[in-house]
Design a protein around this nucleic acid. Sequence first.
DNA 1: TTCTTGGCTTGATAAAAGTCAATCTGTCTG
DNA 2: CAGACAGATTGACTTTTATCAAGCCAAGAA
Lengths: 232, 232
Amino acid sequence: MRPDELPRIRELPLFSSMSEENFLDLTTAAYLQHFPPQVELIVEGDSADFLYVVVEGTVELFAKSNGRETTMAIVRPVNTFILAAVLKDAVYLMSARTVERSRLLMIPTSNVRTAFENDPKFARSIVSELAGCYRAVVKDHKNLKLRSSVERLANRLIKYHTEQGANGTVELFHDKRTLAALLGMTPENLSRAFNTLKPYGVEVNGTSIHLTDLPALETLAKPNQLIDDRTV
Amino acid sequence: MRPDELPRIRELPLFSSMSEENFLDLTTAAYLQHFPPQVELIVEGDSADFLYVVVEGTVELFAKSNGRETTMAIVRPVNTFILAAVLKDAVYLMSARTVERSRLLMIPTSNVRTAFENDPKFARSIVSELAGCYRAVVKDHKNLKLRSSVERLANRLIKYHTEQGANGTVELFHDKRTLAALLGMTPENLSRAFNTLKPYGVEVNGTSIHLTDLPALETLAKPNQLIDDRTV
DNA sequence: TTCTTGGCTTGATAAAAGTCAATCTGTCTG
DNA sequence: CAGACAGATTGACTTTTATCAAGCCAAGAA
């Protein structure tokens, strides 16, 4: 890893409170690497060798069963993935691939666990990160079980809109087929869901979406903090 | 708490490796209490006051949104619930109610976090427990996104069958409406799904189910370790 | 016993979502 | 520039799932 990149990593919530010594132990063992788009980083069922941190780019977590495939999550900077498998020394439950050219920090499993034992503050950060991941999946699960596909799309648009500055425009950072899989529906159905939302002020232009009647959209979507708010 | 009950708690994976001193600190602050059936223990949105451990009985975790309700999980002895909310000092994402008369250990949030700071071995157990919870939800999510309702039922029956000794009989420890909600379908649809499975050797008798043709059922269900195996 | 009750099942129907095939559209490439 | 291509959309249709209403059945109460 280039030494000038260390400070950026150091600032991440996961690492900011640990001791300098333990941070160096972790990072000297780690790799910071570029990957081209569409590279399979890990395959579900393999044993966990590295903890991954997305420093730049986008990573898709997906899962397969019985010939079907679905997107589980999109990981953007700066976030980790497959932390739970690393901590349990278990096999991955999800596969991961890069969506675009990405820069990833890869920390060997054993170093993560050593740092966890030696540095109580790092242990605290790990737990906070892991609990956050848990709560994110619970929210996804509630979303899927309690809402129709049109409602999921509407709420997702409102969520992105808020996160992107609430200026009337939403930019999708992944293609629509991925959005469809993320929302648990087919691409065809996503198209139709967008049409259903047209009367509620949703104007689609490729990956750029204008929301011209947010109150109407919210009336339909009925957003719920305990599902849609990332920070809760 | 009665002193003769301490040893049983002590043996739980979550507590077995922590120091005697810290264990006593935790348990003197905790309450071990009986609850009748159908008591609402916590409500989603409330802030996390206690970590709960189901010592005896059954607890249902559920969530509501926009007038709809679904079962998120059934917690049986000996397991914890809402650990993530406690560790993040956040609000509950799920509500909980007793299904039958149950005995629960309630540990105040602040004591859990103190013990986490003071006892590295307890911290290790907490992380293992939390990672396990995370992986359980990921499996549930995969189950819901990658399978039809009949497949979910078939796999659930196989799972229970394995866990209960694989002797040809499965006993449901919750009523069918709860099973339906847990599997993400309506009670009517569960009834029909059981009918669909009749040709595959599934004989229903109230809450007791016989599996007379496991190979056929497995051919239909296509069980997947990375979804169905609790221990992976 | 008879009545009531709640959970379960069944049937008819409707809505939601998926599938398949065809078409469109913008981008890339030769 | 034309052609190829991938992603997106649309239409027709099927399957899956939900909804609503009615009936069944076993357990508990009078």
